[in-house]
């Protein structure tokens, strides 16, 4: 019985590995649907959506830091008190990270 389960699971693992390879090449992130008008009017809501989609992977869901540095708790404001510098850093990081 256990042997049958393992045999079946190995087949599933093989399929999963094949899917893994296909998705590496085939899967492209889809653009987020446009925010509702009321939400779009609120930059905090839009910013939250943009952060969740593009930044949370490295900086954590709440900006607590992970692969990327901590952003929450005033860390950004302390380091870059000028908002223009904050925008410049985001732009640099966004383009710089994709240079590989």
């Amino acid at each position: 019985m256990l042997k049958r389960v393992v045999n079946a699971l190995e087949l599933v693992a093989l399929l999963a590995a094949a899917t893994f390879v296909v998705l590496l090449f085939a899967y492209r992130p889809t653009a987020k649907p446009a925010a509702p008008a009321a939400a779009a009017a609120n930059p905090l809501v839009v910013g939250e959506q943009v952060f969740a989609a593009n930044c949370s992977t490295c900086h954590g869901a709440h900006g607590e830091g992970a692969v990327g540095p901590r952003l929450s708790g005033g860390a950004v404001v302390r380091r870059y008190p000028n908002p223009a510098d904050q925008i410049a850093v985001v732009e640099y990081t966004r383009t710089g990270l994709n240079r590989g």
Partner: peptide, 21 residues
């Protein structure tokens, strides 16, 4: 692949976890 592919920096599914990481 990892070197040539442009990283998407997108999160995947999280199940019941707070974030992908």
């Amino acid at each position: 692949y990892g070197r040539l592919h442009d990283p998407t920096h997108h999160a995947l599914f999280t199940l019941f976890f707070t974030a992908t990481l």
